[in-house]
Design a protein around this nucleic acid. Structure first.
Lengths: 264, 264
DNA sequence: CGCCTTCTTGAAGGATCTCAAGAAGGGTGG
DNA sequence: CCACCCTTCTTGAGATCCTTCAAGAAGGCG
């Protein structure tokens, strides 16, 4: 292990065990995984399109975007990854990168060799299944992004993105009350929702003027959670978060002013 | 086996072995899988949103859409599945449906019980890995759809959709020369690319008038493959088809009037 | 302090949507 | 085999949302 932290992958194990049943043996095996810490500067592609990948990347800090590119140079971010996410677990079974991975802020990643991961999944089928499940959940999020970009207007798209990020950051334990850290520029947000930076700016202003959310200087400040969920047309079920899986309908009840999990 | 066909899942095995190495033992196990044939009428949801699923569905004939819904009633099709696709392999590890599955035409599916699939993946880790890989490829297609809907204009979106369908149908061996069967209405195509049916109609007319593709009465007729690829800004690498994986760049060479695999 | 990126706002243009109405197509029953 | 119905296709005209172009303000970093 090349880190001072004795168990850098512990957060990843916690995330996996929230959705998959893993015994002590499996958890031990994962803790023993070799990992190499790397820091990546903003806007740097640490995985390039078409490249053959030999490591999976776990995010310790910062935000990562999965980048789709147009011939005309238009960018589309197809997925955002936050700390505790294993960004390209899919590369374990499909090592050729079908999209680039780019740091959206200063990012610390842990590179875990495929050989070690493959040896581990060979010895522990339960881990293989857990990895498969994580990939399926990521795909469910992708499907929701298609809906978001395809069938919501600009304001709804941004509100939906904000809701998703708020839920996920909160789930990772990184939000403070109604303040959610989200250090991206308006241009990057534009690339997430398929709009221009100028229009993102206008819509964020409108959401702020309407006292729904205040997105500024790298943090989301939720002003009216109920109305935000309404504007976003948001149902967190697709995220398959442990808390929301049981009663997704209750989460959007209109008579609850603030989402409990997000209040301090 | 409830079918007269002695090996109804054979096409699925062929598709899997194109991307994953499976031995004779694994293939035998898959052939022995129980399957129950069902016919579904167009526009019928055979899997509903939020439902607990106990079978995975293999398409024998017809087209299936994965449906995302808006509160305002707007539909977005997030994925299209063609014969030889296992539509919801993901349900094996995440049985709660995060989107509905709807027949887009008259569809014949084979329902394979999860219990049988899970028992098989338990006994044959190589099959589990192959299933995981299929899910990852499906996710790569989803990511490309986000790019398509987010960063291409109406004409490009339709052209891209048509290219993808042409490649996939051709890969399944269902196209005849430059004619590709695609029995969907313009309204359904609109739901795939996030447009209105009216605008789909106009853009298809334009593609036809420009002698690029002729999409009519349930079939795609490719008039100028090179220009279609150009208009679509299409690179088939993301489909991870066996033929194209080796030399994806060659596929779009401008001096080739017709894609070889699609000519009769 | 100065530079560079990002944010902000305005005005005009364009792509897509909405509304509407007629034509064409496919299936069904007389 | 024809008549009818219902869905889908087609086309037009006006409205709307988002983009483009532009320029100044604010913010972060050396």
């Amino acid at each position: 292990m090349s880190l001072s932290d004795p168990a850098p992958l512990k957060p990843f194990i916690d995330k996996l065990t929230a959705r998959s049943r893993l015994g002590a043996v499996e958890q031990q095996a994962m803790l023993a995984l070799p990992a190499h810490a790397v820091q990546v500067q903003p806007n740097h592609d640490f995985v390039r399109l078409g490249e053959q990948v030999h490591h999976a990347c776990f995010i310790v800090a910062g935000l990562v975007g999965r980048i789709g590119l147009n011939r005309d140079g238009f960018r589309q971010i197809t997925a955002v990854h936050i700390p505790t996410d294993m960004v390209d677990l899919h590369s374990v079974v499909v090592p050729k990168a079908s999209s680039a991975l780019q740091a959206l802020s200063v990012v610390t990643i842990l590179r875990v060799p495929h050989v070690a991961l493959r040896e581990m999944t060979r010895l522990h089928p339960a881990i293989a299944e857990a990895f498969w499940r994580e990939c399926v959940v990521d795909a469910a999020v992708l499907a929701e992004w298609v809906v978001n970009v395809g069938r919501r207007d600009a304001r709804g798209r941004l509100a939906h993105l904000i809701c998703e990020i708020a839920y996920r950051i909160e789930g990772a334990g990184h939000s403070v009350g109604l303040f959610v850290p989200f250090p991206v520029t308006q241009g990057q947000m534009a690339d997430m929702v398929g709009l221009t930076p100028v229009h993102v700016n206008r819509m964020l202003k409108r959401l702020r003027d309407d006292e729904v959310v205040d997105v500024r200087s790298g943090t989301i400040r939720i002003l009216d959670w109920t109305r935000l969920l309404d504007v976003a047309d948001f149902d967190p079920a697709y995220l398959h978060l442990p808390e929301t899986d049981g009663a997704p309908a209750d989460e959007t009840e209109a008579d609850r002013p603030i989402r409990p999990a997000l209040s301090s």
